[in-house]
């Protein structure tokens, strides 16, 4: 791969950026965030959580409420409109120009930058090859599939060597299989280019696979910032825990440094009182029998997923628990089971 494909890794900083709509509704509470140069950061959350607003603030499509600042490296770009920020943007609906061919779409940003005809042709050709689009150069946009369209959009955004690449739900409009393959391609591209990328999605799988760090958002606020592992294993609160993956809830009671869960108690250094605990399905295990089990229940459902079997176990009291066991499990609905809990994997969250 030629050197020209390696792009500058510009850090991005948001300082006190909030956004209030003209009607008075608050889309984003004041946000401070430092995105490292070359990092892929994913904004994850349900719709209306403020993730797209944040992306549009970085892009320059919206300006923050007075006092907020957006910095690219050391440059304050808050007052610059999007066309002067030198960002690359990829939209959920592709936003390709229907009045132009694939090559003309990719060349558009270079034309705006008054790049000479010869260099333009060379860079467009190079970019189309990188995105495996060489043979489609002369096609019209309506002759392309969704996946091809989004690859053209990526090529168009990257060919101008932007300081930051912004992706707004780029895979949402695609079907599941294409989504996976294009996600891998985007991942490869971001790693190769070394560009700072901001990626917005509501899909936790995409966030986990692509993000160096994930910013989980809810109702205009940041719920947690962390690596995918941190978000998954140490969720900051119940919202993050529920939003990412499957999480079981256990009610227990702490007394005298021990935690009572089900029929057993575990050492637990915490003040006395009732607690709610979270545990991932893969952190619950089937016990050999009553002797080493902590919780008992009946199997309400057993779903064979190939590599594992997902059990839904109903304890005599409390909500149903989801447990992942070996694929070759032969448990069936109605069977009585005993579950073991590893105390190190229990999470107490506010």
């Amino acid at each position: 791969m030629p050197d020209s494909f390696h792009l500058d890794a510009v850090p991005v900083r948001l300082e006190g950026c909030s956004k209030t709509w003209p009607g008075g509704a608050r889309a984003l509470e004041p946000l401070d965030l430092a995105i490292h140069g070359g990092e892929t950061i994913v904004f994850l959350g349900p719709s209306g959580c403020g993730k797209t607003t944040t992306l549009r603030l970085i892009a320059g499509l919206e300006s923050p409420d007075p006092g907020g600042r957006v910095l690219f490296g050391d440059e304050d770009v808050t007052a610059l409109p999007i066309e002067r920020r030198n960002v690359g943007m990829v939209f959920q609906s592709y936003a390709l120009f229907p009045n132009m061919t694939v090559a003309e779409n990719v060349a558009y940003g270079l034309k705006v930058r008054k790049v000479s005809r010869g260099e333009r042709a060379a860079r467009v050709g190079e970019m189309l090859d990188l995105m495996h689009l060489g043979e489609f150069a002369g096609r019209r946009i309506d002759q392309l599939s969704g996946g091809q369209r989004q690859r053209v959009a990526l090529a168009r955004a990257l060919v101008v060597r932007p300081r930051v690449l912004l992706l707004d739900e780029p895979l949402t409009a695609l079907d599941a299989k294409l989504r996976d393959s294009l996600r891998l391609e985007i991942d490869r591209l971001l790693r190769t280019l070394g560009i700072t990328a901001v990626y917005v999605t509501h899909d936790q799988g995409e966030a986990m696979a692509l993000g160096d760090r994930i910013v989980v958002m809810a109702r205009g606020r940041v719920a947690q910032v962390g690596t995918p592992r941190e978000i998954y294993y140490q969720p900051a609160d119940g919202f993050v825990a529920d939003f990412i993956g499957t999480m079981n809830r256990l009610s227990g009671r702490v007394g005298g440094g021990r935690l009572a869960v089900g029929r057993t108690s575990l050492p637990w250094p915490a003040p006395d009182g009732p607690v709610e605990l979270l545990v991932r399905p893969e952190d619950l295990a089937l016990a050999d029998g009553e002797a080493d089990g902590h919780l008992d229940g009946r199997v309400a459902a057993a779903v064979f997923l190939g590599d594992r079997t997902r059990l839904v176990v109903e304890p005599p009291d409390g909500p149903a628990l989801t447990v992942d066991t070996a694929g070759r499990s032969d448990l069936a609905r109605g069977d009585r089971v005993w579950l073991r809990v590893d105390p190190a994997r229990l999470l107490a969250v506010p």
Binding site: A59, P81, F91, A95, L166
Partner: peptide, 19 residues
Amino acid sequence: TDLKTLEEGAASLGAGFLR
């Protein structure tokens, strides 16, 4: 046509209003 998004796309590539 989703003119707004098309224009946002063009703006992100550096095109000013007239262009």
